[in-house]
Structure formats: C-alpha cells, structure tokens
C-alpha cells in the first residue's frame, strides 16, 4: 500500500503546488490551500490513477463514506477503495 500512499500524496502535492515532502499526514486540505474546486480535481485525478469510483459529493464534505478531514484519512480511504475494488 506504500505505492497508493505515495501516489495520492503526489496528486495532493501537485494540486497544492507543494513538494510531496511537505505534505504531512495530519495536514488538512484547507491548510494545504486546496479549495472545493481543487478537491474536485484531486478526486478526479485519484479516480483516474487507480481506476476507481470515489463516492464524493461536494455537498456532503463530512460524509463518512469518504473522509477528507486530513491527508491521512484520504490515503486510508483510497487504500480501502483500491483494496476493495
């Protein structure tokens, strides 16, 4: 799963215009300067990378099925989707 984590962080870093080394697991998207449209692009990029469907609705950012509260929670959710897919 290390590969999944690295790829997700690469995608987040690209959107946040930061170095992957600067993306801490406990960072929130907000603290990385990612807005709602940036998040929609991230979800798309991750879906394309892993060929999965992410159940994300911008109207329900707190929905439990896809926890976006931190970088770590996003990585865990993607790992679960990739493993389950």
């Amino acid at each position: 799963m290390v590969q999944v984590k690295d790829k997700v962080i690469d995608i987040l870093a690209q959107q946040a215009m930061l170095d992957p080394g600067d993306i801490a697991p406990d960072a929130s998207l907000e603290s990385l300067g990612v807005d709602s449209l940036g998040l929609v692009e991230i979800v798309f990029a991750i879906e394309e990378e892993f060929d999965i469907q992410i159940p994300f609705n911008a109207n329900e950012p707190d929905a439990k099925e896809f926890d976006i509260s931190s970088v770590g929670s996003i990585v865990s959710a993607i790992e679960a989707l990739v493993a389950g897919g």
């Binding site: 929609v40 979800v43 798309f44 994300f56 609705n57 911008a58 109207n59």
Partner: peptide, 8 residues
C-alpha cells in the same frame, strides 16, 4: 457528475 454537485 464530474462537478460533484449532483444528488443521487
């Protein structure tokens, strides 16, 4: 759908 603003 891509905009993630649609209800299911």
């Amino acid at each position: 759908e891509g905009l993630r603003v649609m209800s299911r």
